[in-house]
């Protein structure tokens, strides 16, 4: 008995210090998050219930009108749907383009070439977002680089009229957010053992079957992570829609930005932001079972 006591006692004494070390390790990060995100967010949440910006000389009271405005005017709901659709489409295109790219990077290319190609994926990340978007205007505008190129390829091609359209916004956003999808897919693809693919092939599976039954299911965590990382910022985006969308580029994100920068109606902007946030949460809650199964 005495022997077993001495062996179990240190383990028992060990446990609380384990909890303490978890607290010690995560504590600073949470403190940082509370100070930098939660506090300002709480202030914004408070603003969203005011009738005007709480500045001296302004008349303001607590109200729900900012929220009811969203439900009373079709305009906002249409915008919300438009933004959600934009989020889905951009995430989808990022997947369609990014997944094959990540697959090639993770499974086909080896050694130095992989590093070089990786760099090409990352470099857009390093350039200034504004510059990236404006360079797209050079490409997409009438008689721009794209049209001239197509005209050179097929003489008499005519005009695409891409600039200031919904499509232009999608193109710009896909370009901006593609690296997220490539990186998350690359990570989950590179954890797939090549032997699994060989094994499946040797058992008689075609490439398509291997993709459908082995590779896609096993890389689902990366795909989902990438899609979430893209979807959330895209539905609130305002820069790309403004610059590339022109008049067609009105989304919830641009309207919210207007409230803060030009209309100076912070309470409405805040309320719209929180409605957007709630919407995202509802979507994730609804898809939760699928997301969980995927990862």
């Amino acid at each position: 008995m005495a022997v077993s006591d001495t062996t179990t006692a240190p383990i028992r004494r060990h446990r609380p210090s384990n909890a303490r070390s978890i607290l010690g390790l995560t504590g600073p990060a949470y403190l940082w998050l509370v100070i930098t995100i939660l506090l300002p967010l709480a202030a914004m949440f408070y603003f969203s219930f005011l009738s005007d910006v709480p500045l001296p000389g302004r008349d303001w009271q607590v109200t729900l009108s900012n929220y009811t405005a969203f439900f009373q005017q079709d305009f906002y709901r249409t915008l919300m749907l438009r933004s959600l659709r934009l989020g889905f489409e951009v995430a989808l295109w990022c997947f369609v383009i990014g997944f094959p790219c990540a697959y090639v990077l993770a499974k086909t290319i080896k050694g130095r070439w992989r590093e070089a190609l990786f760099l090409m994926v990352i470099i857009p990340f390093w350039s200034n977002a504004l510059i990236r978007v404006f360079s797209w205007t050079m490409v997409l505008r009438g008689n721009g680089i794209l049209e001239r190129f197509l005209d050179w390829l097929i003489p008499g091609f005519g005009s695409l009229n891409l600039m200031f359209t919904y499509e232009a916004v999608v193109i710009g956003l896909v370009h901006s957010y593609l690296p997220y999808m490539i990186l998350t897919c690359y990570i989950s693809l590179s954890t797939i053992d090549d032997d699994l693919i060989d094994a499946a092939r040797s058992m008689g599976a075609s490439r398509l079957t291997v993709l459908r039954r082995i590779i896609l299911p096993l890389s689902m965590p990366g795909i989902v992570a990438g899609a979430v990382l893209i979807f959330v910022p895209v539905i609130g985006s305002f820069m790309e829609p403004r610059i590339l969308g022109g008049r067609e580029g009105t989304f919830l994100g641009t309207v919210i930005e207007d409230q803060f920068t030009s209309v100076f109606n912070w309470p409405l902007g805040a309320a719209l932001s929180f409605i957007l946030l709630a919407c995202v949460m509802v979507i994730f809650a609804v898809f939760q079972p699928i997301l969980r199964r995927a990862s």
């Binding site: 053992d193 094994a199 499946a200 299911p217």
Partner: peptide, 12 residues
């Protein structure tokens, strides 16, 4: 039919 040294079972 190949049986791999590391088994290569499909984890999913």
């Amino acid at each position: 039919g190949m049986m791999f040294q590391n088994y290569a079972l499909f984890p999913n």
